[in-house]
């Protein structure tokens, strides 16, 4: 599992570098053919670069700190115990903490399922992890403004809880009978 992940990571990095090279090559060709566009392209790129470079390191630091100080085991322990409204609220809070990418949350969710957490809770946890992350909201605030970020956040929280109940209704409260890992 770990080895597979390491290979995946290498593949991802290679993909990113290929993306960068392709963008650079295409842009260079375009800017050589259309020199009159250079000024506009450079101005826009510089503006966005400055905006990103002034906020992303801080966001990464926050994510690194939370990943280190709030271990996954603790989250599973606390979430597995709580049920009902409290469980859902906790699921949102823990999901929103700035800790790592979504694929880390899947095994945690599976662990929660085994511990007997409700399906609503798990769906809310996963979805909050995916799209209500605090660092994400901060960057959204920076680029899209308070109204956009606030409204989308409110709507997302409501719909994620709704989705949790809906999926629990569909799947049923009983735990799945299929094995968790093949």
């Amino acid at each position: 599992m770990k080895e597979a992940r390491a290979i995946n990571r290498k593949k991802d990095l290679l993909g990113d570098i290929i993306f960068l090279v392709v963008v650079v090559v295409i842009s260079t060709v375009l800017l050589i053919i259309f020199p009159e566009r250079r000024f506009r392209v450079f101005t826009v790129s510089r503006e966005f670069f400055i905006e990103m470079i002034t906020i992303l390191p801080a966001v990464m630091i926050l994510m690194g700190l939370f990943a280190e100080f709030v271990p996954g085991k603790l989250v599973v322990k606390l979430l597995g115990k709580s049920a009902g409204l409290k469980g859902i609220l906790l699921a949102i809070v823990f999901g929103a903490l700035p800790t790592g990418p979504l694929y880390i949350a899947f095994p945690m969710a599976a662990g929660l399922l085994k511990k007997g957490a409700s399906i609503t809770c798990i769906i809310v946890f996963l979805s909050a992890w995916a799209c209500i992350k605090i660092p994400q909201e901060l960057v959204e605030l920076q680029f899209l403004g308070f109204k956009f970020m606030g409204l989308r956040l409110a709507l997302t929280i409501i719909s994620v809880i709704f989705m949790g109940f809906l999926i629990e209704k569909i799947i049923g409260k009983t735990k799945r009978k299929e094995p968790i890992k093949p």
Binding site: F19, L30, V41, F48, F49
Partner: peptide, 18 residues
């Protein structure tokens, strides 16, 4: 993340410029 950051920054420049 840096390669993607730089790539996207250039991409946005080209997108808005062209």
């Amino acid at each position: 993340m840096l390669p993607v950051i730089i790539g996207i920054v250039i991409f946005i420049g080209i997108l808005l410029g062209f």
